[in-house]
Design a protein around this nucleic acid. Sequence first.
RNA 1: GGGGGGAUUCCCGAGUGGCCAAAGGGGGCAGACUGUAAAUCUGUUAGCUACGCUUUCGAUGGUUCGAAUCCAUCUCCCCCCA
Length: 406
Amino acid sequence: MQNVFDILLERGLIAQTTHSEEIRELLGKEKVTFYIGFDPTADSLHVGHFLQMIVMKHMQDAGHRPIALIGGGTAMVGDPSGRTDMRQMMTKETIAHNCEQFKKQLGMLIDFSDDKAIMVNNADWLLDLNYVEFLRDIGSCFSVNKMLTAECFKQRLEKGLSFLEFNYMLMQSYDFLMLNRKYNCKIELGGDDQWSNILGGIELCRRKDQTQTYGMTFTLLTTSEGKKMGKTAKGALWLDSEKCKPYDFYQYWINVQDSDVINCLKLITFIPMDEIRQMEKWEGQQLNEAKRRLAYEVTKLVHGEEEAKKAEAAAQALFGGSADNADIPSADIGSIGDGINLLDMLMLAQMIPSKGEGRRLVQQGGIYINNEAVTDFNLTVTPDMFENNELLVRKGKKVYKKIIIK
RNA sequence: GGGGGGAUUCCCGAGUGGCCAAAGGGGGCAGACUGUAAAUCUGUUAGCUACGCUUUCGAUGGUUCGAAUCCAUCUCCCCCCA
């Protein structure tokens, strides 16, 4: 069996390691317990987290034991790494709610049965810490001078960093120490922005317990231009099907740039490398096929096979010119009487945020009914324009909505 | 604790009494070109019952015919010194 380290390396997942040789050897010879932390800063995980989950899955498949650490305690403080501003402080209730959501989502990909993976919440040991004891015990192990030189604080030293956030590193380091003691957790994994925090934990384990632990970070999901991926106009690309519909999720991946497809296939799907290497040779229009594969696979992992197939079928119906399909995103606007103003209808269907925007769209030729551009924004849409109470409306090139009336 | 600077539309950032719904850039949206790609070019980007009206320049009051611009108080942020 192939060493999982080589798999991760081959797929381009690994960004930095503390001891590449030792880690590879360790992963090759024994069942290793490792951990990745997820701070519950929102009520759903997003694709950034998903990449971490993929790594966890690779590791679990190779026989290692993942610990998914939910940061119910660290979220009370907020990680300043790589951020330009302070996170908004969240209430305990919000954090507790988010923790629950995370738990559900992590279970999609990781098998937590029979202790094959463990889920813990650092609130369990962080919230009851005694300040002075913690300072004496843990705080004494950290050099402020050293911390200040850490990359993760760079941006914040220019903009301002509160003492609260400055403590984040200690808390995360303490997590590693706890997990090492309790579960013999030997490796901490994380996004590349976690490098400094991970080093802190390793250092702490050595100082307190003289144990050797390791760290490894993963490539952040960025475009070839270096921008973070998974950002949409509305925010992050959420894994929750309510916050981001499977169809929209699918569409996001279909629309990635040519230069990013292969990378995404390697990073967030389990498609064998042999196949990916074939696709790597593709060019031009053929890449669309690779994008379809990417979109389907990722959607399947996140939303399940059924949803992935629906999304694919809907896309096929709209863009492939095939027959009408039941899975096209729809909006039920109820009864329209003898007719309804076009803009009112678009508002009801949530296709436009305001009528002003709607007028502009029509003026610029961006609204289509049954694939015919609408020229008059005062148009009254009448029931006879509907077929079986359905009307296909398009905004721009790719935003479709099937409007349904009673 | 002392001194200084700041808060502007989605973001950055001009604007220092009427010509300001507010320059410029970024981002977003749409059009052309394409491959549901990128790059490029063009238009657009507060809301509305729309040749007009309403809300908007940290908050609240005030001066004025008229305030993003002036005054007062407040809140928050940054910088320098201690």
